Amino acid sequence: MQSFPPELIGNIVEAVDDTPTLLNCLILSRSLSFHAIRALYKSVTLDGERLQAFREAVEANRHYARHIASFSIRHTRSPLRNANIRSIANAAANHNLNYVLSKAPNLRVLKMRLTTWTWADFEASLGPSTQCPWKLTTLVWCDDRSPLELIVAHQGTLEHVQIDRLACQGMAKWGHSFKKLSFPNLRSMRLPYGPRVEPEALGMRKEEWKAAWTTVVEERDGLNMLWSRIR
């Protein structure tokens, strides 16, 4: 019986979307293990409570993180009431997160939900002579912190941007806007509209928000802009 070509077997393993199956592949053979690792690390979704364990896994096998193309994390904020202890816990979570992300040069999709992470803190953790290797194409930001510094750093590669209502409110409050930014590759932007988030505050024309009360798709300068409006 003719055997399957190794490259075909590799493609099949990397197309598997079932963690138990991929974990079994890790112990079957070295060749299957290579492709299983690529599949397991290609798209990573974590809760805050699993961040420490994931950081330890990356520390033990740093080359694994090179396979990460999409990274999504949520709930890294400490629920502790004591402010000092909560601050220490949040700093520890950010330290772990900074380490993991710094080892993922092929990251393209970043999704942040309910974290205390900031772009400025991440840049500081890299050191003065180190540049971030990412070329982000998609950013989903569901938080109350402004993502403007992150967006500015990746405005040349971003294709899709989604920003939560609280973050937009914060941007408007702090005077952060998209004015003077260039998005040569942007295909869509999803933003909320509400009484505290006015288009002008984010650097956009008000008439762009008037077409409907639900998601609006318009073309502006050849781009598809999605305005998600909250009544």
Rank of each mutant, 00 (worst) to 15 (best):
M1S: 12
M1A: 12
M1R: 11
Q2S: 13
S3Q: 15
S3G: 09
S3T: 15
F4H: 09
P6A: 13
L8W: 08
G10N: 04
I12P: 10
T19H: 05
P20N: 03
L22A: 04
L26T: 02
S29A: 06
R30A: 12
R30C: 09
S31M: 09
L32N: 08
S33E: 04
S33W: 00
F34Y: 12
H35P: 01
H35R: 10
A36L: 04
Y41I: 03
Y41W: 13
K42Q: 15
K42P: 04
S43W: 06
V44P: 05
G48M: 05
R50K: 15
F54V: 10
R55Y: 05
H63E: 15
Y64C: 13
A65H: 07
A65L: 06
S78A: 04
N84H: 04
I85H: 02
R86N: 07
R86K: 13
S87Y: 08
I88M: 08
N90M: 06
A91H: 06
A92K: 10
N94R: 10
N94A: 06
H95C: 13
L97Q: 05
K103N: 08
L107P: 01
V109G: 00
L110I: 01
M112W: 13
R113P: 00
T115C: 14
T115D: 11
T116V: 13
T116S: 15
T116I: 10
T116M: 13
A120Y: 07
E123N: 07
S125V: 04
P128S: 13
S129G: 05
T130H: 12
T130A: 11
T130Q: 13
C132N: 12
P133D: 09
P133E: 12
W134F: 08
K135I: 09
T138Q: 14
V140M: 14
W141H: 09
W141G: 05
S146A: 14
S146V: 14
P147Q: 07
P147F: 04
L150Y: 07
A153W: 01
H154G: 07
Q155Y: 00
G156S: 13
T157G: 04
L158Q: 06
L158A: 06
L158Y: 01
H160T: 08
Q162N: 09
R165A: 14
R165P: 00
L166T: 07
Q169H: 07
Q169V: 10
Q169F: 02
M171Y: 01
M171G: 03
A172H: 02
K173L: 11
H176A: 01
H176L: 01
F178M: 03
L181I: 10
F183P: 03
P184M: 08
N185C: 06
S188W: 02
M189L: 09
R190K: 12
R190H: 11
P195D: 10
P195R: 11
R196T: 10
E198N: 09
E198I: 10
E198K: 14
P199N: 03
A201C: 05
A201E: 08
L202Y: 09
E207N: 14
E208P: 00
K210A: 10
W213M: 15
W213L: 15
V217H: 15
V217F: 12
E219T: 11
R220E: 03
R220D: 01
G222S: 04
L223D: 01
N224C: 11
W227G: 02
